[in-house]
Design a protein around this nucleic acid. Structure first.
Length: 258
DNA sequence: ATGTCGAATCGAATTCGA
């Protein structure tokens, strides 16, 4: 079973790129973030024609998440939205059960500029995710937390750490909260398969960041303890970032033995 | 500070968020 996460940065603008990648890689599950489209403008027919069923949580202009599943099996929906703040109108979280695995697709807030209200929102959102993570682990179900976490976990995950120490993606508060999530027992699948490699999943559009390989590793697939032993491979489809009209993220994937 | 995208707007350029 192959599960991928891909911040698409505008689903309708990027639909040809998405369809090409799905056709090439045929992941069993694809978690998408930054759809930037309202619910009713989701390109469901094109995605169905590509062989995928989808559930999504859209929003006008910003955010938006979706889970695509290959084949004819309907997606069993577990929920939209992250509990803990009834005032939160941003579409950043969706869960689905696929082949016995609970898949959570998330788009964690960027949080810049920091400090400030956007950073506060990010940290509060992380606390809510930590609570949901504990619930999911307590359920005993196999779980994958997949998405754009907007968190650079360590210095190995950024091309030039000293430039990012005050950025919301790398600040001490952010890494501390991410560390508390990980301490629940999650496995960082990319890092566990490649302990010492510099691996990036995002390259800014500015200043030819991709050409200079000035990237970040901020897209993650975290595995519950019950799934960690099933991890067979993990990687990044880097070349997708180098194509025409690319997203600023590359698809990131794992292969599970199931 | 810079730079570049996508989406939306009392639009044909500007803003917002990233």
């Amino acid at each position: 079973m192959r599960i991928a996460t891909f911040n698409i940065n505008g689903l309708n603008a990027r639909l040809p790129a998405l369809l090409q990648w799905l056709e090439e890689k045929q992941p069993d599950v694809a978690c998408l973030q930054e759809l930037k489209t309202p619910h009713e403008k989701f390109p469901e027919e094109a995605i169905n024609a590509a062989g995928y069923q989808a559930i999504w949580h859209g929003q006008k202009s910003w955010n938006g998440v979706a889970i695509l599943v290959r084949g004819t099996e309907p997606v069993v929906e577990a929920g939209r939205g992250l509990a803990g703040d009834p005032e939160d109108a941003q579409s950043r979280y969706i869960e689905a059960a696929v082949n016995g695995v609970l898949i959570a697709c998330l788009y964690l807030p960027n949080g810049n500029p920091a400090p400030g209200p956007k950073f506060d929102y990010k940290l509060q959102w992380m606390e809510r995710l930590i609570l949901r993570g504990a619930e999911l682990l307590a359920s005993g179900s196999p779980v994958v937390l997949a998405g754009d976490f907007n968190v650079i976990p360590t210095e190995l995950d950024v091309y030039k750490p000293e430039r990012w120490v005050n950025d919301a993606l790398f600040r001490a508060e952010t890494r501390e909260a991410f560390g508390r999530l990980m301490a629940q027992g999650w496995t960082d699948s990319l890092r566990s398969m490649h302990p010492d490699e510099k691996i990036f999943t995002f390259w800014d559009y500015f200043r030819d960041a991709y050409g200079r390989d000035a990237g970040l590793r901020i897209d993650h697939l975290l595995l519950s303890p019950s799934l960690a032993g099933e991890l067979k491979a993990a990687g990044v489809d880097r070349d997708v970032r180098g194509r025409e009209k690319p997203s600023d993220h590359a698809p990131t994937w794992i292969e599970l033995d199931r």
